[in-house]
Amino acid sequence: MSRRWLVRRIGVAIVVLFVALLINFILPRLMPGDAADIYATAGRMTEQERMAIVQRFGLDQPLWTQFTKYIVNSFQGNFGYSFTYYPSTVMSKVVQALPWSLFLIINAMILQVIIAFILGATSAWKAGGKFDATTQALSLALWATPMFWLAMLALYFFGAQLHWFPIGGQATAAANYSSFFERIGDYYYHATLPIAVLVINQFGGYQLIMRNTMVTTIKEHYITTAEAKGVSERAVKYRHAARNAMLPMVTSVGLRFSLAVAGSIFTEMIFNYNGIGRLIFQSVQMRDYPVLQGCFFILSCSVIIANLLVDILYHRLDPRIRH
């Protein structure tokens, strides 16, 4: 059962990847003009180089051949060249940027889940009370606030005005780190504001799920049992209730990964953080289609993998479905 489930999940992942590739393949070809232009037009490209790309992607051949070549190239990690940064390949740009984005996203998501776990559990513990009403109103308000605007304000106040944090970049330029910890410290220093903005803007979604599950969980009989056992209120709340109520929230991490990705696009743009998000922003400005598509594909991959991992984690967390 478990293996069948895994195979099925992987099957779905592959289909979704395929769809992402399909979108990337079709879009440029739906546009008026020559598909070759999209792939093989960079400002300083020579005719020879252009022909090489046309060859490689079979752009002068029938659609079907183009498609198979496209798929083969994709699996080799070949998505062509950047318009703006020719002769950089799309893959090299994307691979450079991805770790930074993941750094932001994963840190932010862990914090979000922890905050949501505590706030959601606490507000459901006295559902309908003042704390519950306040946190709900607040997290909804923060959720409804545009991420990029929050980021602009944060940058302005904490960066430009108070000088608490750097106003951009992901690391001190040309820094010579004496130790690993210094390096990591510098990364975190630069990432503090972007992560804070991501967390503040997006924890509300988790918190809502956590709270609503918790509200029903605390009516369960095993909570009464735990209370009757005389364990402390904290232990009942966290060890018994919240531990059970967190499962839907944890599953939602997979689906919400793509929201975090969306959020990182804005924060990276505002904070000049050289991750995928900033790359997307620059590519939009320059209409650097190959890079844009590469980013879309790599983000799809990350989201799909995150989904898979979360599903597996969920299986570990809930003994009922482990068997």
Partner: peptide, 23 residues
């Protein structure tokens, strides 16, 4: 009072299915 619970008085509750924590 928490010390009284279970130490002095314990409870076998109504719901056989749901009285134990599933995780």
């Amino acid at each position: 009072f928490r010390k009284v619970r279970w130490e002095r008085i314990s409870l076998i509750s109504q719901a056989a299915m749901g009285a134990l924590n599933p995780v």
